[in-house]
């Protein structure tokens, strides 16, 4: 199986899409922020899909990992801003803190929630997300509801020009890299033992257990990986880019819903789906906000309904079926 030629060919279109976003943003510098928004949605979908697409488990509290990652970077920058000559070391520590904190949270959540199925899992994860937000506010940890505003710390560490460049350019580059890495990891998982085990699990969890697949182990691996990417996304797209964090903002459940929409539009469990979904979602939101400010949701919601009814497997899922048996099959995964 591992000797099958071209098993990573499917990376070409997805990586081309991320590279394309970057290049487009460079040649159209006045559209860079649009690219940044699109990259955020693609990356959110890609990271979310890593767990949901493979297992079929809907983690409704997914935004908690993004939020914790944001705090990881925010805490690092605000605590280390006084350290002489810390420079780019602070960024590295921040990213590590974000990844570490989201990994720890995912292990804790996984220990409780991964024993649950279907809707019980979805709701338990909502509970974790909401509970965590109220814990920050109620127990007054991490500055409680006042959140952390660290624009000045970013300036203190890097100087004004670099700080602005970090917020308006490099943070977005990181997001593109994180999205692309999530795509690579997704394909590696798909093509390895983890992928086969999780496919068996998605089809029939009990049967998978009976034939001796250690589903829990693979579930947890996929769950933690997905959470770490979410944490890194928070550290860059929310912390580094926006330079503030408030608890209700960082744990806003709406972002999970957006991740679901993106994955659904593209096709759950596909490699290319989140990118296509993210681009579709981000672009239509952007244009509607410009053409019809104030009405975009009213137009957008029925469109989603039509797409769900017409293509329940998402656009890429539909495409995948169409190209089955043709030369394109290897590229559209």
């Amino acid at each position: 199986m591992s000797a099958r030629p071209g098993k990573y060919l499917a990376l070409i279109p997805v990586l081309a899409a991320y590279l394309g976003m970057f290049v487009f943003g460079r040649v159209q510098p006045d559209m860079w922020q649009l690219v940044a928004m699109l990259a955020f949605y693609c990356c959110l979908g890609q990271a979310f899909n890593l767990f949901l697409g493979m297992t079929g488990y809907v983690d409704f509290g997914y935004v908690a990992f993004v939020g914790v990652g944001t705090y990881g970077m925010a805490l690092t920058l605000s605590r280390l801003s006084g350290v002489e000559g810390i420079g780019f070391g602070a960024l590295v520590i921040g990213l590590l803190a974000a990844a570490g904190m989201s990994a720890m949270l995912s292990i804790a959540v996984g220990a409780v929630a991964l024993r649950l199925r279907g809707a019980y899992f979805a709701i338990a994860t909502i509970g974790v997300n909401e509970g965590f937000r109220y814990f920050i506010e109620g127990a007054r940890i991490w500055n409680g509801s006042e959140g952390i505003i660290f624009s000045k710390d970013l300036r203190a560490i890097f100087g004004r020009e670099t700080a602005i460049a970090l917020s308006t350019f490099w943070a977005d580059v990181f997001v593109i890299v994180i999205g692309a890495s999530a795509a690579v990891v997704t394909l590696i998982y798909m093509r390895s033992k983890i992928g086969f085990a999780l496919t068996a699990l998605r089809e029939d969890e009990d049967a998978a257990k009976v034939i001796g697949i250690f589903v829990t182990k693979y579930k947890i691996i996929a769950f933690i990986t997905s959470a770490v990417f979410a944490g890194l996304l928070g550290a860059t797209a929310w912390a580094l880019k926006l330079t503030y964090v408030y608890p209700p903002d960082a744990f806003e459940i709406h972002y999970t819903v957006e991740a679901i929409i993106i994955v659904m539009l593209g096709g759950a469990g596909t490699l290319l789906g989140p990118v296509v979904g993210g681009l579709l979602y981000g672009l239509s939101k952007y244009w509607l906000a410009i053409i019809l400010p104030g009405f975009q949701l009213l137009i957008f919601a029925p469109i989603i309904l039509v797409i769900i009814v017409a293509f329940p497997e998402g656009t890429v899922g539909y495409l995948k079926k169409k190209v089955r048996g043709t030369a394109l099959e290897r590229y559209i995964v």
């Binding site: 006045d30 559209m31 860079w32 922020q33 649009l34 940044a36 928004m37 955020f40 949605y41 308006t168 797209a237 880019k241 939101k285 952007y286 906000a289 410009i290």
Partner: peptide, 9 residues
């Protein structure tokens, strides 16, 4: 998310 791209535009 929308604020920065709209300001840039």
């Amino acid at each position: 998310e929308s604020v920065t791209s709209l300001i840039e535009r």
